[in-house]
Nucleic acid binder design. Sequence first.
DNA 1: ATAGGGTTAG
Length: 403
Amino acid sequence: MSSQLRAVGCRGSLVFTQNLKLTQLAKSGRIEEAIGVFHGMTNRNTVTYNSMISAYAKNGRVVEARRLFDQMPYRNLVSWNTMIAGYSHNGCVAEALQHFKMMRKEGKDPDWSTFACALSGCANLAALQVGTQLHNLLLKSGHIIDIFAGNALITMYARCGRILTARQVFDEMVSVDLVSWNSLIAGHALNGYAKAAISIFQEMKKNGVAPDEVTFIGLLSACSHAGMVDDGLELFYSMSRDYPITPVAEHYACVVDLLGRAGRLGEALKLVKGMPIKANAGIWGSLLGACRMHKNPEVANVAAEKLFEFEPHTTSNYVLLSNIHAEAGSWGEVERVRVLMKERGVWKQPARSWIEIKNEVRSFSSDDSTEPRAAEVFMVLRVLNAQMRNIGHMSDSSLLDCG
DNA sequence: ATAGGGTTAG
């Protein structure tokens, strides 16, 4: 009997060790090696499968994740949550919801984590209808009292443009934490309510909650969207002066955006050059975007050169720089960018977008001939464009070409 | 013991 137990114990500890190895490899992004370990294992338990499903999903390989999920002999709550999170984070909201319903049919009750990751997927795609369905299920399940699920709900409504509903969810929560406040602030920032975002910040402090670095990203982006340059700069300085928070790259990106939108490109460039940390592609890209808005080819060349070091093959960066020079009438510079693209083998890859219509996620691309109602779509675009011009908005030239 | 989980610029 005891030798039998020992044997089981040994086998158990071998699986444990191999699972650990698998997880470590997956965490450090060595997915191929993780696959090798998985295939080499003779004994696999539920944790083994869950680890591998998670590793696939985190690398965007949802089809392979799903194959393992279907193959595994026993699925626990973590298996379902891993699969739903994987679908959610890869933009497959319909599949995430389908699995949500499947698990309930199999008698597995979703927990806060299931709701949180499914709602987070809806937030990213602005899938309001699916999100609202999940809200209803959340109310029925009783997990509405869960702070993590509530926070995901706030973000879902905010990102779908339903800021009042987001506030209502916040107000009805049994208890809130720093992430709840941050979600509410970021939600208001996203929807252009800068003054409200700042007053929520005051409210938060009055409630004895100390801000963190995420709070300030929300506040700075709020100021940036509303053109509140001085308030934004003051908040940026107060971070390290009044709170023990050291600005990171994301904060600098917000301030560059803030100065850039206001046309203060020289100051923005000076800030990036004087940063105590290394600038990233986002920061240079933000500056380049502002250069187009305010027609500044000189700063654009500096920003683009830095940006190309990070992303030498991203077509849109070259197109942006080329457009800036074209709008300034510098055809020699336009040609220089064209030669640069040719030398570096940069070519255009068509991007795809998606939208939720009647509970179904549909994908489309620019000039999509597979879209059955393309003529109608372009007609509506022309009308909108005319209306925008009437109220003085200068349209992007690419919109004028449509239809 | 090892697996899943909410907020973060453009």
